[in-house]
Design a binder for these strands. Structure first.
Lengths: 337, 337
DNA sequence: CTTGGCACTCATAGGGAGGGAGTGCCAGGA
DNA sequence: TCCTGGCACTCCCTCCCTATGAGTGCCAAG
């Protein structure tokens, strides 16, 4: 259907359009890339490519620009992910390894990704449900008030205040704490509900109300935090691009956790690179936006996703390289901590 | 210098310009406000106002627009803070009271403020140094690894991992924890360094290295967190305004904690409303931006600041009303929790 | 299948011309 | 002393027109 030269033409169109942001014509193509044929020949190829829906012209007598379908073909078959330079790798490593807690890791990551790609970066916090319990702590903070602290193996810490409504003895709390830790240590958060089901029966009757209160808050925490937090950075990069219509929509999307989640994709999705181009996006109003995302995690377990959001007219090989590299390094950092 | 009518003219110009975004002429003024005099008279007044630097014209034969000095006079003497409607107050109260931890309070506040004012809202996390210690917890999370959790009276929780380099007995930790809590309970964070100074001497010599490690991390936490976190929301509102040049600068400022801090002002500043108009801002590039900010806190103690960032051409009375109301409610919520 | 030639299309930039909103000034009136 | 109506003037903005030029599609010849 499409011979090698036509594919080369498409690739050249994508590359030129990405770098110049102007419709590219047949003459400019043969000048910039040595294709060995005349502009007229290229025009014939372009006509075919347009008929097949890979490129389009904004108006008659203008050059061609790629369609979403064209970008898709480019990403799938005509380009290779561009590895980062050694200097960039080292910069990532030193920048990320300076982080001292999970918030900091995520914050540094999102800023780094925005800077590397010169676009808007988005990072999802590691999912709670895919983590396991490292430690549970119960701290009396006032009369009839406890603080529950839950620490996961991904370094995440959740804390909630519990109203007990009755006075509780110190050693009851210590006992409960010990029990919680023995029965939850290393437990997947998803398994916590079943793991604690039998707990009330192992304690004296007078402590039952307290146990109930603690457990209900614990389970509540797991549920509420299930919708995972997402942060972004690099919004200023939007201003440089020619985003007339898109700008507002993108900014709105960035502040809607739910929309962002859909854009990044499910954690269950392929942990390697995912690219969503223009209308492939689930969201209206992001028709001129592409998303390059990847999962990250510890070992072969994906904990969350991160990615980059930019105009369909973006440097896919470079962006994909940056996203992949950052995802890997974050995984390493999380594994070490 | 300026009689009542001239002031009325200035007020009318500000109000009309804010609502229409177009230079306002003498005829339009007498039509919209019943000033009881003719356009020619208004023109004379305008000439005086312009000579004094309160208004200017973009070009000859155009209407007038307020200068920064004009807005300043308007804010200081010609307008009153516009209280929120009952419905708005109730909305704030119910929305904020649903929050379940500090992160949530701050997150809800910033979104709420952005929505109320239809501008970019900025909220600074309650300062650590102005809080006091509610509880300190030490949790062994692995061999030679402790987790230090610091809980403040403002609901803030900081956690850090400590590498002990040597094995530590459980009861040494318990002892240290007890000591820390007795000597730090209720202590201002600023006073922590002196409060713990003598602590190593109260423990057996073999535990000294551990104590040193814990204390150094504790003090480090206080220092590092001294540069307080700031969050923002409502960036999408920037797209609607006619921010050609400003947009990029504002977006950049929003991602620079340091710049945002300077914009909001020092916590020590007046806890009531502060307005910075255009060139009054410390930052280059925000020459067409105004900031309305206020301190918030518990009781009569200011813990941090929050505010709104928008074009100099903004609805000052309404914005000031919203900022003041939200600051008060956040204070209430913090006091209750 | 490729190529050069040629007529055609159409976005874009530049140059007046006209309309209109707004101003400054002045002389007369309260 | 202050207000008012009249009047000439200044420019911005819009519209229209034209020229330009990049780019195309088609065709006939190599």
């Amino acid at each position: 259907m499409l011979d090698d030269r036509k594919l080369a033409v498409l690739r050249a169109i994508v590359e030129d359009y990405v770098s110049t942001n102007e419709p590219v014509g047949s003459k400019a193509l043969v000048d910039r890339h040595n294709l060995g044929v005349s502009p007229a020949t290229i025009r014939n190829d372009m006509a075919v490519l347009e008929e097949q829906g890979y490129i389009t012209q904004p108006h008659t007598s203008a050059g061609r620009i790629p369609t979403d379908k064209g970008y898709r073909l480019f990403v799938d078959r005509l380009s290779t992910v561009k590895p980062l330079s050694g200097a960039e790798r080292r910069a990532i490593e030193t920048f990320l390894s300076g982080a001292y807690d999970l918030d900091d890791v995520v914050g540094r990551t999102v800023r780094l990704l925005a800077q590397l790609t010169r676009q808007v970066a988005v990072v999802q916090y590691p999912s709670l449900t895919r983590s396991s319990v490292r430690h549970v702590e119960l701290v009396p903070v006032a009369a009839r008030r406890l603080l529950l602290v839950l620490i996961t193996n991904t370094g995440r810490v959740e804390q909630r205040v519990i109203e007990t409504h009755v006075d509780v003895a110190e050693d009851s709390i210590a006992h409960l704490r010990a029990l919680l830790n023995t029965c939850l240590d290393g437990c997947w958060l998803g398994d916590v509900p079943t793991a604690v089901a039998d707990l009330p029966n192992q304690l004296p009757v007078e402590d039952r109300p307290v146990v109930a209160a603690v457990l209900s808050v614990l389970l509540e925490t797991l549920v509420e935090k299930h919708d995972e937090k997402i942060v972004f950075a690099g919004a200023a990069n939007l201003a440089s691009v020619d985003f007339s219509e898109g700008l507002r929509n993108v900014l709105e999307a960035l502040e809607e956790q739910v929309v962002l989640m859909r854009l990044l994709g499910e954690v269950g999705d392929s942990s390697s690179l995912t690219v969503r181009i223009g209308t492939e996006n689930p969201d209206e109003g992001l028709r001129t936006t592409s998303v390059v995302a990847a999962g990250y995690g510890v070992g072969n377990q994906t904990l969350a996703r991160l990615g980059v959001l930019g105009p369909t007219r973006m440097d896919y090989p470079g962006t994909m390289g940056a996203v992949r590299a950052v995802a890997r390094y974050v995984g390493q950092i999380l594994a070490e901590s």
